[in-house]
Simulated assay, not measured.
Amino acid sequence: MAEVASRYRERRSRLTDAVVWTNTNATGAAALPVLPDGCMDLLWSEGRLLVAGPDTRAYMADGAVGRRWVGIRFAPGTAPALLGVPAHELRDRRVDLADLWSPATARRLAEQVGAARDQPAALEAIALRRASEAESPDPVLRRIVGALDAGWSVAATAAAAAGLGARVLHRRSLAAFGYGPKTLARILRLQRALAVARSGVPLADTAVRTGFADQAHLARDVRELAGMRLSELLTRA
């Protein structure tokens, strides 16, 4: 049996709506692309703390043999209040935490994680402390995500879930999610479809169940957002 290219583990965080994860490339083989999901991550690797902004396209992570990543993934809309920066400023970017916070603070925190026996717990502790000092995420944001993930139209989401005008919804979405509600809806729909397809549902049925016009529509979105064919993505998952 071939050796697994990476060892990925995750667990639910003590921080609301977050997941703590680790990933180590065991062989140097090409990893699956990181697909857009509306989330943002705080990352530690090789002595550095970084922030991964919300993606609009697939991201290929470093494939160096033995490189270890520790991360905490924040649900859509929850990271900007904690990090103190609008999400759209980090869209499709990976930046050093020192570019967002005090360089001395970022360096000290990176050293703490690096020296910790339990690095995921140390990174989680940083996020928990920061969350206790930051403003709580706007509850409207959770309703926006829930409505769009349920397949509501942007107009219905603005009127019923958020009680906002279309322009205000777009502006707040840029700050919270990194892009407008139409893009977020498209990304969430893709993630729903992949989850259904991976459960064994035929692709044509998957497309209908998750809000696509047909299987060809689903395939086009996978190609554009993941950078590969749907069949290839499912085979490699």
Results as ranks from 00 to 15, higher is better:
A18R: 01
V140Q: 05
A98F: 11
C39F: 10
T16E: 15
M40I: 02
A150R: 07
A204N: 09
A2F: 12
V196E: 08
L43A: 05
A125C: 07
A193R: 03
A216N: 11
A226Y: 08
E224K: 11
E124Q: 15
R172K: 15
L188Y: 00
A207V: 02
A226K: 02
T210V: 08
A116P: 03
Q119E: 14
R68C: 08
V208I: 11
A176G: 03
D41P: 00
R12F: 10
T16G: 09
A207C: 04
A127E: 02
A29G: 07
R171V: 04
R48M: 03
A155D: 14
L188P: 01
A87T: 04
V208R: 13
R129S: 08
I72F: 03
R220M: 10
A30M: 07
G178W: 10
P120F: 00
M60V: 12
A147S: 15
A5Q: 05
P120M: 06
S132V: 02
R229N: 06
L225R: 11
G28E: 05
P33N: 05
S153D: 12
H88N: 12
L230Q: 00
E232K: 14
S45F: 14
D118W: 01
P103N: 08
A18T: 05
D221W: 10
A150H: 07
T210E: 11
D96L: 13
K182A: 11
G200I: 08
T206E: 00
V222S: 02
A195L: 06
W101Y: 02
R108G: 11
E224D: 14
G77T: 02
G47V: 01
R220W: 11
L188E: 02
R192W: 01
L123S: 09
P33Q: 09
P33E: 11
R209T: 04
G114C: 13
R91S: 09
V20K: 01
A104P: 00
S6T: 14
R67I: 12
R189N: 08
E3R: 15
L164Y: 06
R142C: 07
R172H: 10
A155K: 13
A116K: 07
P54N: 04
L225W: 12
R186K: 12
A18F: 07
Q215I: 14
V85T: 15
E10A: 13
V19P: 00
W69R: 05
T22K: 07
A195K: 09
H88Q: 14
L188H: 00
D41Y: 05
R68F: 02
E224N: 11
L184E: 06
P33G: 05
V168F: 07
S231F: 13
A87E: 03
W152P: 04
D92R: 03
R73I: 06
D138S: 11
G165T: 14
W69C: 02
L174K: 06
T183Q: 10
D62H: 09
D37P: 00
G53C: 12
P36H: 03
Q215P: 03
A115P: 10
R91A: 13
V222P: 01
V65G: 04
V145W: 13
G151R: 03
W69N: 06
A162Q: 00
P202N: 01
R236D: 10
W69M: 06
V140P: 01
